[in-house]
Design a protein around this nucleic acid. Structure first.
Lengths: 190, 190
DNA sequence: TCAAAACGTTGACATACATCAACATTTTTC
DNA sequence: GAAAAATGTTGATGTATGTCAACGTTTTGA
């Protein structure tokens, strides 16, 4: 149950067996269904999730009422609605398992207690923040000045898993284009 | 010379007089001219900057060769090309003082030494990361689904300083619209 | 202080892409 | 396993905004 998590932790910093056990003791397993909402819009986010199996999507609605996907997290990664998790304000996004998934959740208090008490865990948190920042920046700024075709090519190159694992509609909403446009671009690429 | 910086630090965490002095001792003052480049594209970023006076812009060029402004930092704030600063890869952006400015710079090694040795300073760094992440997310995702008019209204509401302090061209490139479009939208708002 | 450069504004025009709709296909659910 | 719902595809059409150009104004730097 904790194999993937301990492997992840070990790859990022060095922990003793006891420490790993202590960390794992704070996580509970959750099984979710397809399209299950983990966090609703304007909920305050209380949990950090580690994905044992499945896929979690972060998404929201734009001003004109369209879905906008922000992030897809797959097996072996942490995910949460970070802004809300950090400052405990109502989230401006949803967390959803788009396929039936197996997650490990840790409560915010426990998470921050680990950050406070285990320097190696604090280091992992810093890395998550740094990496999250970098990835978000690259993704978003990388798209600036790209037309639909270039966006699709970019995503095929940098996140090939995405177009395979995720519906056209969701992928399109991640790329910031209409599903019809994505469909046409894909046709052009064959 | 360090008044603004110590005020900033004190507002974020508690330091002893000695600690503040130690921290300040790592900063050197720089005076820059209008449009001076602090960090070129593909340079590796070695410094964190604190702005005593002036304004620093983070910008890059899009695939189609247009300038794209990512961030404007004003007096009393830290700024750097974070992705490059963190992982020491060539920056995919420029750092520039758009008006003549007075900065305090700290070298990366010194910065991380402070993070390592002073828990209060580490806390500030974590906060910078968290806040940077949140601000970047809100800004960028906030614009999704906005047309030009809505973007301009948003910026007037949330960063009123920006349209005043910054040229039309730069503001437009921050909003992801053409200068001509910004001009037209502003005319419409009067 | 003045010439030169940069910038802002406005109009005419072009175009990528959204939207809508109709139909085909796949997936879900009971 | 059949009916229903969701999704993907393709065509026709509209529109917001980019681009280009011309001109007036402001800023700059020697």
């Amino acid at each position: 149950m904790f194999a993937t998590l301990t492997k992840f932790l070990d790859s990022k910093a060095s922990f003793s067996k006891d420490q790993l056990e202590e960390i794992c003791s704070f996580f509970s397993q959750i099984k979710t269904k397809r399209n299950q909402i983990l966090l609703g819009f304007e909920d305050v986010c209380k949990y950090y999730y580690f994905i044992n199996k499945g896929c979690v999507r972060l998404y929201t609605f734009t001003a004109d009422g369209n879905e906008s996907s922000r992030y897809f997290a797959f097996e072996g990664n942490f995910v949460t609605a970070l802004p809300s998790f950090i400052d405990q304000q109502p989230a401006e996004e949803f967390l959803q398992t788009i396929i039936s998934s197996e997650l490990l959740s840790i409560r915010r208090e426990d998470f921050y207690r680990l950050v406070k008490t285990l320097p190696a865990f604090a280091k992992i948190y810093t890395e998550i923040l740094e990496l999250g920042f970098i990835v978000a920046q690259k993704r978003i700024y990388g798209f600036q000045g790209f037309d639909a075709l270039e966006k699709v090519k970019w995503i095929i190159k940098h996140q090939p898993k995405l177009l395979i694992s995720v519906s056209n509609r969701m992928a399109a909403s991640y790329l910031g284009i209409a599903p019809a446009t994505l469909s046409r671009v894909k046709a052009k690429l064959n």
